[in-house]
Amino acid sequence: MMISANLNTYLIIAVILLIIGLYGMLQHRSLIGMLISSEFILNGAGLNFMAFNRFVAPNPAVGQIYTLFIMGIAAAEAAIVISIIIAVYRKYGSEDPERVQDMKL
């Protein structure tokens, strides 16, 4: 039984990625650490899409396209978050999310 040709393997890897991201999200106390963790969650989703695409889906292009979209959105999200972090850092002199309390930047 080849473990690399089994749907459940990939699903479990994706779950572990999601859990890693979740753990990082809960534990990290800096905005960038949270951004890094969110990338893990997105990657878990992408891996899931690809796994279903390979083993279950009738049209093998769909999963790849979805994963591509996830990558594009991740890139856009990272750009936005980084610029927000820079703005926050400039305003508060720190990137501790607990200090960011004003509604207006």
Partner: peptide, 17 residues
């Protein structure tokens, strides 16, 4: 995309803030 763009962007963020 991830290693070449997103990671590098995050590293920039780490260095700036």
């Amino acid at each position: 995309i991830y290693v070449g763009a997103v990671c590098i962007m995050i590293v920039m963020g780490v260095m700036l803030g």
